[in-house]
């Protein structure tokens, strides 16, 4: 429609656009600019070309942080998306499952910091209950300094992440299952399909779009993981849980290397946006599946 007065659409869009430009768009452009400088945050930035990027690719801590993020992502694809899918299959197979759905979703809405502080106690080597329980059931050899041992730290973080977010993916998948026309399900049941067959052959294929979205969310979210790692290990021990975001925050806000940090931020942006675009290209639209 044509607006009743010419200024109206601009008036309607202006506040949103102004706030967005001030807080996000402008800073993004500036970050790209800053990535080409050497800057401590206070004095005048000096232009150094692509030096920061060269440094980033030679920075072992930074390059390895992507490896850690990759491990975390693979682990959470299993512990969050796959477990979420299984839980959704379970709770949608029976009636009266509201209680479980509500319970499994609880951690999603609590601040990650609260959960991280709680888990750092559960896993505390000296007074955490996990080690005490292992002690009492005679599995002493399984005891670990979970977050302080490089062989278990990253995995522990992934498991905690799974504890938090499996319920989230369950809710997404569950909602998808609910939207599958009941006639399809009922007729399959009449044909004698078991709940498991139903899940594998009808339900999951029909929410294919949702699983693709879930994988995208899990991967792009995984590259950006911060709160959990920051509170639980802050990159330690020996940088073995250092992920791109925690390292970025250290470079910028501890070492005050704003220019270098901006370059790291630009790389991270390109990775996230690039992955999102490629993934969307690869996804084939299929009309036979349920849209969310």
């Amino acid at each position: 429609m044509k607006p009743t007065a010419r200024w109206i659409p601009y008036f309607l869009v202006a506040p949103a656009f102004a706030i967005f430009t001030l807080a996000i768009l402008g800073p993004i452009i500036a970050t790209f600019g800053l990535s080409l400088t050497d800057w401590d945050g206070f004095s005048t930035p000096s232009f150094i070309g692509l030096e920061n990027f060269v440094r980033a690719f030679n920075d072992k801590v930074y390059t390895s942080s992507y490896g850690h993020a990759a491990i975390y992502i693979v682990a959470t694809l299993v512990l969050e998306v796959l477990v979420g899918l299984i839980l959704a299959g379970l709770v949608s197979a029976k009636r009266n499952t509201t209680f479980y759905r509500v319970a499994f979703f609880t951690p999603v809405m609590l601040p990650l910091v609260v959960i991280s502080v709680l888990w750092s106690f559960l896993l505390n080597p000296d007074l955490g209950i996990l080690n005490r329980i292992l002690d009492q059931v005679g599995l002493e050899s399984w005891k670990h300094i979970w977050l302080g041992d490089q062989s278990t730290a990253l995995l522990s973080i992934s498991v905690i992440s799974g504890w938090i977010f499996a319920g989230f993916y369950m809710a997404i998948f569950y909602a998808g299952f609910q939207r599958i026309p009941s006639t399809i399900i009922e007729s399959a049941r009449l044909d004698g399909a078991s709940e498991l067959q139903l899940l594998r052959q009808i339900k999951i294929p029909m929410i294919k779009n949702l699983t693709e979205v879930a994988v995208l969310l899990c991967v792009t979210g995984g590259i950006q993981v911060f709160d959990l790692v920051y509170v639980l290990t802050n990159g330690g021990p020996y940088d073995t849980t250092q992920v791109p975001t925690t390292y970025l925050v250290r470079v910028v806000f501890r070492d005050q290397q704003m220019g270098y940090g901006s370059a790291l931020a630009v790389i991270l942006t390109l990775v996230v946006v690039g992955f999102g675009l490629i993934y969307n290209k690869l996804r084939t639209k299929d009309d036979s599946v349920v849209e969310y």
Binding site: A23, P27, T31, L34, T245, L248, T269, V272, V273
Partner: peptide, 13 residues
């Protein structure tokens, strides 16, 4: 799609 880390350094400044 943009992560927070894309812009928070300049936003901070």
């Amino acid at each position: 799609i943009l992560p927070l880390q894309s812009y928070f350094i300049a936003q901070n400044a």
